[in-house]
């Protein structure tokens, strides 16, 4: 890949949480929530991140916006890394986050106007007269009436609240939006409204998205590139069309087959994965997915360093003997 076109690049990012125990609360183990994730994102692109709950999607999102500190690894953003303290303010302005549950991520005691204006106050954008104008402009952009400024979040429905969350994230004119399950709490009809809004905003403002969801159909709809995560690691990453038409990893295949298709005439074989995602505190040795499904070749993955391998151009998959069928 050409270096100049990269916008966001994660370099072997790890986020480990210490598990404390004993009298002195010493770290007796580590929960490896994100364990060596690397990918890059170009300007104007959308990267979709899918995986089951507990696979580290949200931890990854939070560490990108630096709500969590990575244990190791670097996040490169444009021409600097997020460790660069002098550029921290720039970074916070360029990268904003939209949270999953709009009811919980909006302060119930602030008016909508105050909520959207707060990032402007913090970053010192505009003056006292300009800020309310900007707030109104943002409300119109996300499809809410200007009269909303004086109302409170509880007066709005779930979809409208998510629009408020998006308006707040857009207030400081960011270049990258990290969307952590932005539509999972919404009804289908409202979900499609919000997805359309996100696509329109991307076209209009040239935004890049990191879109996290557990619904592969939604992710496929909005993304250029999809990364599939399992137990803190990316197991497969490819363009949306390629991943859907030619999944290589056994986990991706199972994930795609598990999505219910809204058409009763389509009869497919559901691949049912037994069991649950193993705990990231004490992960099984070797290939974590092979261990779960009790794959035939699982013993072959023991003691092997598992890394991503480029199988087809720009289609990377975790090189594991038990999860990839030859041929």
């Amino acid at each position: 890949m050409i270096k100049g076109s990269e916008f966001l690049r994660l370099d072997n990012l790890r986020v480990h949480f210490p598990v404390r125990g004993g009298v002195f609360k010493k770290a007796i183990g580590y929960c490896k929530a994100v364990d060596g994730v690397s990918f890059s994102l170009k300007k104007g692109q959308t990267l979709g991140l899918v995986g089951e709950s507990g696979c580290g999607k949200s931890t990854l999102a939070k560490s990108i916006v630096r709500l969590l500190r990575p244990t190791s690894g670097k996040i490169h953003f444009k021409d600097y890394t997020t460790d660069d303290i002098e550029r921290r303010k720039d970074f916070c302005k360029s990268v904003q986050m939209v949270f999953q549950d709009p009811a919980e991520s909006l302060n119930t005691r602030m008016t909508v106007g105050a909520i959207i204006q707060e990032p402007l106050d913090i970053h010192g954008l505009g003056n006292r007269d300009e800020r309310p104008v900007r707030v109104k402009e943002l409300l119109q952009k996300v499809g809410l009436p200007v009269s909303a400024t004086r109302r409170y979040p509880f007066e709005f429905s779930g979809g409208q609240r998510q629009r408020i969350g998006i308006a707040r994230a857009l207030a400081v004119s960011p270049e990258l939006l990290v969307l952590d399950e932005p539509v999972s709490a919404l009804d289908v009809s409202v979900q499609s409204q919000v997805l359309n809004l996100l696509l329109d905003l991307q076209n209009e403002l040239g935004l890049s998205y990191l879109f996290i969801a557990h619904d592969l159909a939604v992710v496929k709809h909005v993304s250029d590139i999809i990364a599939v995560m399992y137990l803190g690691k990316i197991v497969e990453i490819a363009s949306a069309e390629e991943l859907y038409s030619n999944p290589l990893h056994a986990y991706t295949k199972a994930l795609i087959s598990a999505i219910p298709v809204p058409d009763p005439s389509v009869k497919r074989k559901r691949i049912v994965i037994p069991g649950d995602v193993p705990s990231p505190i004490d992960p099984p040795p070797g290939c974590a997915f092979g261990h779960r499904v009790n794959a035939k070749n699982y013993p072959a993955s023991l003691g092997m360093p598992l890394g991503l391998k480029e199988v087809v151009a720009d289609h990377w998959v975790l090189d594991c003997p038990c999860c990839i069928e030859e041929g």
């Binding site: 429905s157 289908v188 009809s189 997805l195 696509l199 709809h221 999505i259």
Partner: peptide, 23 residues
């Protein structure tokens, strides 16, 4: 409209979805 507003795996990426206005 409800059927039209679901994103489908075999559909076009980034196409606008049909929506039901309002709530």
């Amino acid at each position: 409209d409800l059927l039209g507003s679901i994103p489908r795996l075999d559909g076009h990426s980034k196409a606008r979805l049909k929506t039901i206005e309002g709530i």
